[in-house]
Nucleic acid binder design. Structure first.
Lengths: 132, 132
DNA sequence: CTAGGTGCAAATTTTTTGCACATGC
DNA sequence: GCATGTGCAAAAAATTTGCACCTAG
């Protein structure tokens, strides 16, 4: 496993930007924020590095919402809430809906597949879009 | 000829094709299958009608996998399994990982959002891709 | 006639990729 | 020098849309 100290300056900055937010940003969002600090940055580099992070296992995709893939540097399991209106993505505590111990093994036995991951996503309206 | 839904012939055929399969197909898949039976059909019409079905609540999106949105005419809640290699999508019995009664209300109270839906997706390798 | 549905192709949007150049060891 | 990283723009791929026509009622 590669230490992120060996990252290039731009790769490091992209990872830090992703890791420092809880907004589960898109590539575009990361690019827009970083191009102020790093004038030479290109959007393609952001895409390429987000792919690198996924392959390394230090980031994951939350899903594609409103046509844009959303990323998360918090790779420990937790459910998400997605607002159907503004596509805000909120982390939910792991305590909501915790997976049973042998759930993957049960599915494997009953369905003839191998399972190594899962995702839980709730949908609705966030506080701002709810008109409250 | 009029059917009970008042769908046009093509709309009805698209819905029937979606409802008759458990493959959770993409628009392309539906189009490829139907264009043999309905020579004049166009891909745009398939896309437009799948959107209509989603708005009507008689179909839903399973998610976007391998760049293609996948649809399901089975709108009653059930978890899905997605093969990371071939992107086959398999229905799992509702009994796996059933939601707790007041889960939505708990999330609403604790997180200040309104919740009306959720999805659970397991990932791994299907039987064919597992080399078994 | 009217309203909705469709074919067709162009446009849109997001993401990927080819290639030349840059950078660090 | 060599391998990796990057800018830039073109390409790719999926989906949406504009518009003219068509069809049912």
């Amino acid at each position: 496993m590669q230490n992120k100290r060996n990252f290039s300056a731009k790769r490091e900055a992209i990872f830090q930007e992703l890791a420092a937010t809880d907004t589960h940003p898109s590539a575009e969002w990361v690019y827009e924020r970083l191009k102020e600090k790093i004038p030479g940055l290109s959007l393609g580099t952001v895409y390429r590095n987000l792919s690198v992070f996924k392959e390394m296992g230090i980031a994951r995709s939350v899903g594609i919402f409103n046509g844009q893939e959303r990323f998360d540097a918090n790779v420990s399991y937790h459910p998400h809430f997605v607002c159907k209106t503004c596509f805000r993505i909120i982390d939910l505590p792991k305590g909501f809906y915790p997976p049973e111990k042998n759930l993957y093994r049960m599915i494997e036995r009953d369905c003839g597949v191998s399972v190594d991951d899962h995702a839980i996503t709730f949908y609705g309206l966030c506080h701002e879009c709810n008109g409250i």
